[in-house]
Amino acid sequence: MPGETFKEYVDSLSYGSRTDLLFKFLKNLPEEAAERFLQSLLRELGEVVDTGDLSSLFDLIYEAQLAGYSPPDEETRWKYEDAPFAPLKKPLSEMRVGLLTSSGHYVLGQPHAPPELAEYSQEEGTRHIGEYGRAKPFLSAVPVDTPQERIGVHQPGYDIRAALKDRETVMPIDRMGEMEAAGVIGEFARTAYSFIGLTSQIRLTKEDAPAWAEKAKTEGWEAAVLVPV
């Protein structure tokens, strides 16, 4: 836009007029680092045109995301002194193991968000992230025999393109089933769960996460694989 600064351009990628959830981290970088990243991105794209080798491009994005999501220690909001740790009581090959993710997967046709957010599309959700941050966490049950084509994703906190193409990128239901078949785990709990990770952390900590743990226990979970995005 006429008169727009580079900083304003970069900021617009993070829940602004040019929202791009894969590159929203650029807003967290110093302006010079963001400039270097974009210049390097163009250079690597120029290489890919000739070589078809994407590895350097992936490395560039990964390293920039690592820098963008590494806050200075004093800016880390959630810090704890204690470290809860539950030891395993028996081999995994004898345990029922559950799966829970913050990827926002849900079964199509089923409720997938708090009522006040349920009508938003993924794109609309990116324009209302403040509401998500205040919302009560919502847990979706996903029976593990649900076919991929009956699963949707709603989570305006991250780039969901991979999760839509293949849930296994972040919600590895089929891979867990294979671990059960191979005897690595005793049993894969028949219902997996997912929630919209962009939610009220206070409510999650004080109310919902402890309630979900009790629910998991009633369903016989003896261990859990947890996957954030």
Partner: peptide, 17 residues
Amino acid sequence: SVGHVSRAFEAAGIPTV
């Protein structure tokens, strides 16, 4: 979010990764 879920599960006696 998942860090908070993990802490709740561990506190409840469910080992997590």
